[in-house]
Design a protein around this nucleic acid. Structure first.
Lengths: 158, 158
DNA sequence: AATGAAAGTGTTTATCC
DNA sequence: GGATAAACACTTTCATT
């Protein structure tokens, strides 16, 4: 069988306007009922349910999740740290990053800096102790986030 | 709104085990019904509704949102770009970043590199054209994401 | 803070187009 | 792909503790 219409679709999903509208609505409030979504897009609730089922099945919609406010939990500071492990320390450093709950995101990248990690901190005083363990096994370069001109947003939808 | 007793409270939220469980459940699936949540934590649906209402009011829960899979939309590549605007170009560069839909996240940071931006790309061929406009107004340093040892996760909850 | 009861909504499945 | 209808489930409000 050649590339089937369905496989083709799932890897190159072109979403119609209604799918886009549904995703837009859910990105604002993932708890909207099928009934509310249906009223917004002009379909019946079962049709909305079926579209969401398909979007989930195709893997376009990966999850519905909750966004917490770090400030409300006392995290007043975000730091972005570039990390270059010392020779032989790569795996240990990676394990340390994974096991540090203050690291809320970490990517392994090309280039001299092997990792880029995002830390949440309660105060600037926490920076030094938290980086200390890693500093023994890696060179680090820390930037403090002053503002976020683009907060996490959706990928552009084809 | 000025600083109020309520804001104060929201800055020092200590969540009990049930609130933590609710957040944990919702972070896996923000569309779970109050009834399902209630069964999981051993409360009645109205009690769950009231706890969520409070978490939202306190600002701990900022939003319920949908997570899309960039791969399913054709974005095979993620790049992290550090951007140092040339003299006088800071605002123009910032505007450009905000208006570029491929930039799904951008922070303004301390240090020589003024911005750190996360780009989604369909292929490596897109990198050069997309950076070109910015390259006229800033020095850039690009890292390609090879892996993500820590995918976006929740802040540690007190 | 939490509950139970009741009225109002929403979901889901089957059937049809 | 989408609609309707009916059975079932959930949500929300309120009085109670």
């Amino acid at each position: 069988m050649a590339i089937s219409a369905r496989n083709f679709k799932s890897k190159n999903s072109v979403l119609d306007e209604i799918d886009q509208a549904l995703i837009g609505l859910l990105s604002d409030n993932a708890r909207l009922s099928h009934a509310e979504l249906a009223r917004s897009v002009g379909l019946s609730p079962p049709s909305v349910a079926e579209r969401l089922r398909r979007l989930e099945e195709e893997g376009v919609v990966k999850a519905y999740t909750v966004e917490l406010d770090p400030k409300a939990l006392g995290y007043t500071l975000t730091a972005i740290v570039r990390i270059r492990p010392l020779p032989g320390q790569l795996h240990h450093v990676e394990k340390l990053l994974i096991e540090t709950p203050e690291v809320i995101e970490c990517d392994k990248v090309t280039g001299d800096d092997c990792f880029v990690a995002r830390y949440l901190l309660r105060s600037i005083d926490e920076l030094d102790p938290i980086l200390e363990r890693i500093a023994q096994r890696a060179q680090t370069s820390t930037s403090i986030v002053k503002a976020s001109p683009v907060k996490r947003r959706l990928p552009p939808i084809p």
